[in-house]
Design a protein around this nucleic acid. Structure first.
Length: 1162
RNA sequence: GCUCGAGUGGCGGAACUGGUAGACGCGCUGGAUUCAAAAUCCAGUUCCUUUGGAGUGUGGGUUCGAUUCCCACCUCGAGUACCA
């Protein structure tokens, strides 16, 4: 009622003229910036470019808390600063909007993830806008937008169409590889590829079917489909990449992970391992981040050594016969000679079958024209003991002969012999081959028949090779079933089964237990030719190196423990080292002994020598090994980018033509895997690709099957989607030209913007996003699409802002009426002071605790009951406990708002409080911000109460950007009152002021005093240095000092206040704009030139010298700066205080540093 | 275990290439203003056995002088983990 009667002038007085009305000011300027597109960046400009980037957020449903915008504030300050410095600044923002939470929500509620995402983005945008960021929102990207993911799919296609040429050390178009294959086969190609590629000649290549060729190319492409051991998370129904697994459980949700073989898309990031490592030296990124990428890539130098597996028993003569020599020894030379002759002149049928068997890529090896026993057989697979004979014309004599051979080979030597006629091979090759495959699948491995297996190991200590007294294979190693002897078979299989059962987590948690099994087989030491026993053990990992090690117990603790446990000899090959207790692994102190040609050499010398010797005998070479694995790129999820891939009738993957992109996500009824276990996209009704010439579309399975096959291409589309990091691996380049629908970005745009100058984001992306992005950038560079090999010159990891939780301490009691035995007070909470709690907690005796608690709550217990309590009859007291208190109920002095607290949690409605000085003081603890700890602070509330400028300044003021630090709302009053003081400083620029309040006074055109100028220029210098060094916390205090000084100086001069407004503007842009307007400017402050620092205003004529005695400062003396050393010394020594300090002693020495300090020693 | 980072008042933190330790802010204490509260303003605030002395995790070292450089150790945090 009264409000209506308040005259307008008063409203005006309280409204905008006098007070710092931040809500009004901030809304006004946010509107202005949006309407004027103040921060829109142009792709061509005479100005120098500067690209400031934030890691774009995943828009989660919870919205922002006060910790999230820290990095955005820092980057915004830098971006605004660079605009003042005359740069054309690109400062974009967008959303990483594909991801799990929206999908999980969809599974629970059926709401389409796109809708959830859209809603979350709205909240994010509102929260970001209210903080006054200078983002160019015209360039917003969203990874889940088909217009954006069109280009993610496009890059995928480029990767598919590329291979890595190790000779040129760059990616190339797959066509260049195809021409090489057609011209010279693959023997001379030096490419990053799968390990299981077999060699072929140009003729072989040209005779391969298209399907076979495509199968081979897949082993070379930079993204490829392969059966991979993956991290399968049953609880999530998907696979995860290595960087998404932490301690054997999923990073999100902590679900158990199991190893599983699946056909998956992978990215050949390993091709770039060395370049990813080298590139780290060229970029200004935090050392810890570089370290973790270096560790992740895990380069180690050493050697690869091949060990031949020996026959199971030494040969009769006592010597060692290689396994593949299976002929009788007396006949061997003759037979071998003949066999060689026959190999040169194969029959047509033999040749055809030989080619077919080689091309088949069976996981066993065939030999042709091989001497066995006293015969030469056409083909033999030694591992399985299978002999294949191809017969010419059949007549009686030969039939008898063949039968005799078969009989001898099968019965005496235990081989399996199958025969084919020439005609069969020539006319029906396919049947012949499949018959051979059929027989092979029935036959067991090995069992004493020989074979010529080699075990390749990787070692970083080839110098210790003479200390290798056994070998250890991972239980999963493919040779294990092939070499295990019949006697050891049961034990080995039992061990393999036992390790398979242990989860990854158990295996990691339990590294101390030594376990393993002997295979019964021996390998031959490459130099001593001694037999070396082959063991299996789970301390050898299948996924690293070759999954096999040469075990040197004297030089490796794990090998040592293994040898000790199983009683394997531990030969010592180190000069003067005792290895009776533990292995010796110090490379620097190594002198090799008992090692033939390595004796007396140091580690470095021995390594060089042994590698040369290994190369000489063809059993090894120097090798660099990486821990980095290829990255699995398939996810069994709905809410991600669909692959632009369909499978043709041969089942081979085919890329969609670029003109059909984007391939949009299909609609599905439910977001779970199908009943047959297919990923969610298997639920889509329409998910087949149908194409005739230039016309292609997504259709249903039925429509596809009913369409005319003539001229048709297409087939079922890929059911997996891309992982979270797909969309974020090139978004920084897309920002340069985000609306381009012809290209991923125009040449002009990338030529102008080049790369990111400053990238700010969290360190948790070290081995994920930041590694993958570097990989894609290098690929894009190889393709000639981007001009820079590294996408971000400088990167800063902002620290986490933690919460400051509040705790209240309580107990509760119940009272029973003595007479009626009825409960009169049930579970009454009593909140006790923190020190009572601490005191009680520190005691171990229950009775003492009881005593303390009872004493403390005594005063709140009604008098009628006190007597009963003393008799211990009427009361039940709970143990003491503490509970979180919502931080909004606590004031700056840690005092609890008791009424608010009682309303907040109904169960405390009747709680009693033991007060101290009329207050209840809570306990404080620094913890991660989370809802369950009631310590989350919402930026909306802070903006409402203190304004965005206060929030921005306070977040910077908290401490160094990269450090993690606790949030405490109480402290914000400091920066808030600074802004009020700043506002007040500009009051002379108010219009005519009513009611005689201060403001409007002071001569705005008065000349600045030298004091004013000194304060200003000191501030310019410090703030400029601070921003360049990202030391934002110290420049906030510099502003405070500046404003305090100018206020004390009663400065009203425009000459000072104008530059000051610009200095403040990056930090507190809203108030700066408003003050700028008050100063009479009609345009935004955003592009006003940064004030120029001038040394001349800081020149001093005197210095307040600290006078120290033996390094301790005792007093100061003001002296002119132009005094010489001697003059200073005289002035100091004649000073009365100096004599007082010396107490008559004569100083030994007087150190004078002009302009700095005087130190008197003695 | 290994790698990296950090230890400074009641709290967040400052101190440039070794040169006045504790800037700035919070909190606290006292005062002014006010019926009162909030807000605002002023003064003080490292500790102690206070004519002085000690002090930057601990112990040594280099130096005229060390939070800063070197060595050893302790504590906390981050990353990584049977990587051959």
């Amino acid at each position: 009622m009264l409000a209506h009667e308040i005259p307008d002038v008063v409203i005006c007085f309280y409204g905008s003229k006098m007070n710092y009305n931040f809500n009004e000011i901030e809304a006004k300027w946010q509107k202005y910036w949006a309407e004027h597109q103040t921060f829109k960046a142009e792709n061509n400009s005479d100005k120098e470019k500067f690209y400031v980037l934030d890691m774009f957020p995943y828009p989660s449903g919870a919205g922002l808390h006060v910790g999230h915008p820290l990095g955005y504030i820092a980057s915004d300050i830098y971006a605004r600063y660079k605009r003042h410095k005359g740069f054309n600044v690109l400062h974009p923002q967008g959303y990483d909007s594909f991801g799990l939470p929206a999908e999980q929500y969809a599974i629970q509620t059926g709401q389409h993830p796109a809708i959830t995402t859209e809603e979350n983005i709205k909240t994010y945008r509102r929260q970001l806008d209210q903080l006054g960021f200078s983002f160019d929102w015209n360039r917003e990207v969203r990874t889940s937008d088909p217009k954006y993911y069109k280009w993610t799919q496009w890059i995928f296609i480029q990767l598919f169409n590329s291979w890595y040429n190790k000779d040129l050390d760059k990616a190339e178009d797959i066509e260049t590889l195809i021409s090489k294959f057609a011209a010279e086969g693959n023997t001379k190609v030096n490419a990053a590829c799968d390990e299981d590629v077999s060699q072929f000649s140009a003729d072989d290549w040209n005779s391969f079917s298209s399907k076979e060729q495509q199968g081979i190319l897949l082993k070379y492409r930079l993204t490829y489909l392969a059966d991979t051991e993956v991290n399968w998370v049953p609880a999530l129904g998907t696979v995860l990449a290595n960087d998404e697994i932490v301690n054997g459980v999923s990073e999100r949700g902590g679900h158990p992970v199991v190893r599983k073989k699946m056909t998956q898309w992978s990215m050949r990031i390993t091709a770039y391992a060395q370049r990813l490592l080298d590139g780290l030296n060229t970029i200004d990124w935090p050392q810890p981040l570089k370290d973790s990428q270096t560790n992740w890539i895990g380069r180690s130098e050493g050697a690869s050594v091949n060990f031949k597996v020996l026959p199971l028993a030494p040969s009769e003569g006592g010597g060692i016969t290689p396994r593949y020599i299976t002929a009788d020894s007396d006949l061997y030379p003759v037979l071998l000679e003949r066999a060689k002759e026959m190999r040169k002149n194969p029959t047509a049928a033999e040749d055809k079958l030989w080619q077919a068997l080689r091309r088949k890529n069976l996981d066993v090896r065939f030999r042709r024209q091989h001497p066995i026993y006293r015969f030469i057989v056409d083909f033999v697979c030694l591992e399985k003991g299978l002999i294949i004979e191809v017969d010419g014309k059949i007549h009686k004599y030969q039939l008898d002969n063949d039968a005799q051979r078969t009989l001898e080979l099968e019965q005496k030597k235990g081989y399996t012999v199958i025969r084919f006629a020439n005609d069969e091979v020539l006319n029906d090759l396919e049947r012949v081959v499949s018959e051979i495959e059929g027989v092979l699948s029935f036959l067991p491995f090995g069992e004493g028949r020989g074979g010529d297996f080699e075990i390749e190991v990787f070692t970083t200590r080839p110098d210790t090779i003479f200390g290798a007294s056994f070998m250890t294979l991972a239980p999963e190693h493919e040779l294990v079933p092939k070499i295990t002897t019949p006697e050891q078979k049961a034990e080995v299989e039992a061990y393999i089964e036992a390790t398979a059962k242990r989860s990854e987590r158990d295996r990691m948690a339990d590294v101390k237990t030594v376990s393993g099994a002997f295979t019964g087989a021996y390998a031959e030491h490459p130099f001593t030719k001694e037999p070396v026993p082959i063991w299996i053990g789970d301390y050898v990992l299948a996924g690293y190196g070759t999954g096999a090690v040469m075990s040197v117990p004297c030089g490796d603790q794990r090998d040592y423990d293994f040898a000790k446990h199983f009683g394997i000899p531990i030969p010592n090959i180190f000069e003067g080292i005792d290895i009776s207790e533990e292995a010796f692994a110090d490379k620097e102190k190594t002198i090799i002994a008992n090692s033939d040609f390595l004796n007396g050499l140091s580690y470095k010398e021995a390594v060089k020598k042994v590698i040369a010797e290994l190369e000489k005998i063809g059993q090894g070479k120097g090798k660099v090994n990486y821990r980095l694995r290829d990255a699995v790129f398939s996810r069994q999820r709905y809410w991600g980018e669909p692959f632009p891939v369909y499978y043709d009738e041969d089942g081979m993957p085919q890329m969609l033509d670029e003109k059909f992109l984007p391939l949009e996500l299909p609609e599905v009824d439910k977001y779970l895997p199908t009943e047959t276990g297919d990923p969610p996209l298997g639920n889509a009704k329409k998910w087949h690709w149908l194409q005739y010439g230039d016309n292609g579309k997504v259709v249903s399975k039925e429509e596809f099957e009913n369409s005319s096959p003539s001229g048709r291409s297409g087939g079922p589309l890929e059911l997996n989607t891309m992982p979270g990091w797909a969309g974020s691996s090139q978004y920084f380049n897309r920002y340069m030209d985000p609306h381009n629908d012809k290209e991923i970005f125009s040449q002009e745009a990338i030529d102008y913007w080049q790369d990111v100058d400053l990238y700010i984001g969290g360190s948790e992306h070290a081995t994920g996003h930041l590694l993958y992005s570097r990989f894609w950038q290098k690929f894009m560079f190889d393709m000639g699409l981007v001009p820079k090999v590294e996408f971000a010159k400088k990167l800063i990891n902002q620290g986490m802002i933690t919460g400051t939780s509040g705790y209240a301490f309580f107990t509760f009691y119940s009272l029973i009426d003595e007479a009626t035995k009825k409960v009169v007070v049930d579970r009454r909470y009593v909140f006790i002071p923190k020190d009572v709690y601490d005191n009680a907690i520190s005691l171990s005796l229950t009775s003492e605790v009881d005593q303390i608690v009872k004493e403390s709550i005594w005063e709140v217990i009604p008098e009628d009951f006190r007597e009963g309590i003393l008799k211990k009859e009427l009361i039940f007291i709970s143990p003491i406990a503490k509970t979180h208190v919502d931080v909004s109920l606590i004031n700056a002095s840690d005092q609890l708002d008791i009424d608010g607290f009682k309303k907040w949690q109904p169960e405390y409605k009747n709680a009693e409080f033991i007060l101290e000085n009329g207050k209840y003081i809570v306990g404080r603890e620094v913890e991660k911000m989370s809802k369950s700890k009631y310590n989350v602070v919402n930026p909306d509330d802070i903006c409402e109460e203190y304004g965005a400028d206060s929030l921005r300044m306070y977040e910077m003021f908290l401490g160094p950007l990269e450090q993690s630090k606790p949030w405490n709302t109480a402290g914000i009053t400091g920066v808030h009152s600074f802004l009020k003081k700043l506002w007040k400083l500009y009051s002379p620029f108010e219009g005519p002021v009513l009611s005689g309040a201060e403001g409007g006074q002071g001569d705005v055109n008065s000349e600045a005093t030298s004091e004013n100028l000194k304060t200003l220029h000191k501030t310019i210098k410090k703030v400029e240095d601070d921003i360049e060094n990202f030391s934002f916390n110290t420049s906030v205090s510099t502003f405070m000092i500046c404003v305090n000084e100018l206020t004390a100086q009663k400065c009203t001069s425009r000459e000072i206040l104008e530059p000051l407004a610009i200095l403040v503007s990056p930090y507190a842009p809203h108030i700066a704009e408003e003050l700028w307007e008050k100063l009479g400017h009609g345009e935004s402050i955003a592009f006003a030139p940064f004030p120029k620092f001038e040394q001349k205003y800081l020149v001093e004529s005197t210095k307040e010298y600290p006078i120290s005695f033996n390094g301790k400062m005792r007093f100061t003396m003001e002296l002119p700066l132009d005094l010489s050393k001697e003059e200073i010394e005289t002035a100091v020594m004649t000073n009365e205080k100096t004599q007082q300090q010396l107490e008559g002693r004569t100083p030994k020495k007087v150190i004078v540093v002009p302009g700095k300090i005087v130190n008197i020693v003695g």
